[in-house]
Each structure stands twice: as structure tokens, then as C-alpha cells.
Amino acid sequence: MSTNNSTSWEEKVGFAKMHCGGVIMDVTTADEAKIAQDAGATAVMALERVPSDIRKEGGVARMSPVKVIREIVESVTIPVMAKVRIGHFMEARILEELGVDFIDESEVLTPADEAHHIDKLAFKIPFVCGARNLGEALRRIGEGAAMIRTKGEAGTGNVVEAVRHMRQIQREMKELTTLHADELMTQARDHGAPFNLIVDVAKSGKLPVPNFAAGGVATPADAALMMALGAEAVFVGSGIFKSGDPERMAQGIVRAVTYWEDAAELAKITEEYASPTMPGIDINEIDPSQRLQDRGW
């Protein structure tokens, strides 16, 4: 049994599980964090710029300024998550020092390392990472991620990539459950994933950590769709603060994630919390070099 000050795997995954059925919202300032908390976010995600602005403005996207992180931590009582660049373990060390509760090693920011992700087991606080398929999810869990989210295609307001990634992960997990033990090493090779985690998934049919949706969720209906596809909670990035009425949009998405199984209630929520959605981008209009989901491996 660990001592009082060490945060073990159990506490990391347990904390991740407490966000189930909830919505985690991207924020860039303390004021936005307060709006998110009041609208019913289970946590806020601090980052320098929301994905749609990063897409528009270009340049290197980094973790939020320390001053902003401090202001956000002080302004809300719900957990604060924050994004770091892929492989940038020093940004992560700084965030841990600031009392951030969860770190997102995120493809939305400009990668700091094109070959290596952070050794997440070396930290006391938990990490969430994006994935497009089962192999990628299990590689991140192998490195110590306590929560997985689909990558989707952030900043597009288009849910199609999140759907693609969620369906793929679910399908690949289901396939594993149908195989014999002697077929699993080949699967580990083909998925490029740790063998023990492949065996885990083959037994349980699910990831050993919570599996959330992210990347392109822009309406309450999008959020409900991701829940129906097997997401346990939803991240919303540009979809809230780039919408016409962030507060209402946030409230609508929160309610849709709780009542996703009840179509009548969803219809009511969608009407009651109607807000102009962020302008969307068709995936085929994005130059492949601008696709955020291809960052990381």
C-alpha cells in the first residue's frame, strides 16, 4: 500500500472515472473557466488558444502561460486540466508544480518531440492522451496514460473524425474478444501495442482506462452521438467558446451527455439551449499537412 503522498495508478484511473457522464471544456482564461464551471463542466482544460484559433493563426501552440493557469486554478473549485505539447515533459513538470489536476499530452499543440511521448508513469498526476485506433490508445496507456480520448479533428466543429476514431477503437476491441490466446501476440505486433494490454482488452472487451470522446464536438446532438458510440464522457474544445452563446451551448452539451438515451429530452435540450454553432470545416478541405490528428504516433 502506498503512502499518503504518492498518487498511485488506482487514484489516477479512479479520478479519470469520476468524470464519466460529464463534459470537460477547453478554456483560455479564468473568466471562461468560471462560465464552464457554472454551466456544469466536470473539469476545465486550460490551453493557450482554442484549436480553431490555432488552425487560423498558425505558429507554435504551447501550454498556457503560468499566470493564466494560476488564475484558472484559483477561480474554480472543479478540477483543472491543462494541455502540454507531445513529448514536452518540462511543460508537464511545471503544470504538476502549479497544482494542475490532469495533463493532456495533446496533438492540438505543436509537438515538441516527433518520436517520443512523455513517460507518464513518472508523474504523480494523471495524463490523458488522444488516439485514433486501439494500437495508439494502448501505446499511450503503456506509457502511463490514465484516460484515453479520441483525437477526432480538433477545431473543425466537424464530428466525423471523432466518430471514425471511436468506431475504429470499439471495433478493434470487439475483434480481440473473438480471438484465441495463441492469436494475441500477432495482434500485439500488428497493433504495435504492449502484449499484456492486448491480452487485457481481449478478456474485458474494453480499455483498462476510461475512453472519452474529443475532437470536433460542436452541438448537444454531437455529444449524445459520441455517448451512444461508447464514449464515457465528452471533451469540447472550440465548440463552446466559438459558438454564438457559450453559456447556453455549454449547458446544452452537459444535459445532452446525461440524457443521451432519452430522445424526447434531447429534442427539448437541443431546442431550449439552441445557440449558433461554431462555423464548421469539411475534413476534405483541410490540407493533410494541417491535420492535427496525424501528430503523435
Binding site: 500500500m1 502506498s2 503512502t3 498518487t7 473549485t77 478540477p79 489536476d101 498526476i125
Partner: peptide
Amino acid sequence: QRNAYGRQRESFDAP
């Protein structure tokens, strides 16, 4: 009292 022990880095397990 909410969050009485601190933030996530202060989370712990104990008998």
C-alpha cells in the same frame, strides 16, 4: 468540507 486534502496530487489511498 470539499477538496479538504488538496488537489489531485494530494489524492491518496489508505487503510
